[in-house]
Computed example of a mutant assay.
Amino acid sequence: MNKHSYEGIVGLLDKFKPDLIITDHQMFAGAIAAVNRNIPYATSVTAPSCN
Rank of each mutant, 00 (worst) to 15 (best):
M1H: 12
M1W: 05
M1N: 11
N2E: 09
N2M: 00
K3R: 14
H4P: 00
Y6V: 03
E7Q: 15
G8F: 07
G8K: 04
I9N: 07
I9V: 14
V10C: 11
L13Q: 06
K17I: 01
K17T: 09
P18R: 00
D19R: 14
L20P: 02
L20H: 11
L20W: 09
L20D: 05
L20I: 14
I21Q: 08
I21F: 03
I21M: 02
I22K: 09
I22H: 07
I22Q: 04
I22Y: 07
T23F: 00
T23G: 03
D24I: 00
D24V: 00
M27A: 14
A29P: 06
A29E: 11
A29Q: 10
A29F: 02
G30S: 07
G30M: 07
G30H: 06
G30E: 09
A31S: 15
A31F: 01
I32W: 01
I32G: 02
I32S: 11
A33M: 02
V35E: 15
V35P: 01
N36W: 03
N36S: 14
R37C: 08
R37P: 01
R37T: 07
N38V: 03
N38Q: 11
N38H: 14
N38Y: 08
I39M: 12
P40Y: 09
P40V: 06
P40G: 01
Y41I: 02
T43E: 11
T43F: 03
S44M: 13
S44N: 07
V45P: 00
V45R: 14
T46S: 13
T46Q: 12
T46Y: 11
A47W: 09
A47G: 03
A47M: 10
P48G: 03
P48I: 08
S49Y: 08
S49V: 09
S49A: 13
S49M: 04
C50R: 13
N51H: 05
N51K: 10
